[in-house]
Design a protein around this nucleic acid. Structure first.
Lengths: 115, 115
DNA sequence: GGTCTACTTAGACATCTTTCGAAGTAGGAG
DNA sequence: CTCCTACTTCGAAAGATGTCTAAGTAGACC
């Protein structure tokens, strides 16, 4: 640690990633490494009010409701989104800290990042 | 562009990702969404001189040489690393722009997450 | 040339993923 | 209570992925 080779590199390139940490991060990355889930995350995050109803999301794809539900579950299990049922509809929203963690991995920063 | 919601959100959360763009980004993300490839990328990026020989990388894993070679090919096909043969050994290095692109996807632009 | 080392490619196999249709659960309306 | 809508869970089929062994290529050295 404290391998301060300078602020030249993304955190991932400062020092070799430990095996356990790599496994944990891979789970997070696998969650977003799918076109449908990327679009879902983007749609939820950019939706007015910061929340989106599953019904809105399903309509945007040529996929069945169970498939969308599955992808939402993957994102939720990874901690990238959260949801709540209010009456008839279920609403999803983005967990900013989890998304930021992904960004921090690859972004060259001037300051040290405590991941 | 012209999504002047301010610097509050990661680019992915500014406006819905187009289908084609999501597919393209998913390819890049799939490349890093694996524990072995994450560690490879990290090892190459943090290696002295910015380059790493395949032989060094192979030794760090309990995997056979063909498997490591396969993972390196995936990273190379995605444009995240590049390689060159010099004499007996093959050297790999990171392509910073490709890594930065990943970071830019999820990082809130102006300010760190004020949580 | 022949051989050794350092990878890469090819083929095979087990496992994980994506997707669907069908059935289940939960809440609102009549 | 009965029905309708809005999801979620279950089970299965098709495809993608990670890993291996075996074989191929490329350079160094004798």
């Amino acid at each position: 640690m404290t391998a301060t080779d300078g602020p030249c590199c993304a955190p991932i390139a400062r020092e070799p990633l430990a095996e356990a940490e790599a496994a944990e991060l891979a789970v997070l990355l696998k969650a977003v490494a799918d076109p449908v889930r990327l679009r879902l995350l983007s749609m939820i995050g950019s939706h007015a009010g910061g929340e989106a109803c599953v019904c809105d999301l399903t309509e945007a794809f040529d996929l069945t409701a169970p498939t969308i539900s599955h992808h939402l579950k993957v994102l939720r299990t990874a901690g990238l989104i959260d949801s709540e049922r209010r009456g008839t509809w279920v609403y999803y929203w983005v967990v900013p800290a989890a998304v930021a963690r992904l960004g921090a991995l690859f972004t060259p920063l001037a300051e040290p990042v405590a991941v």
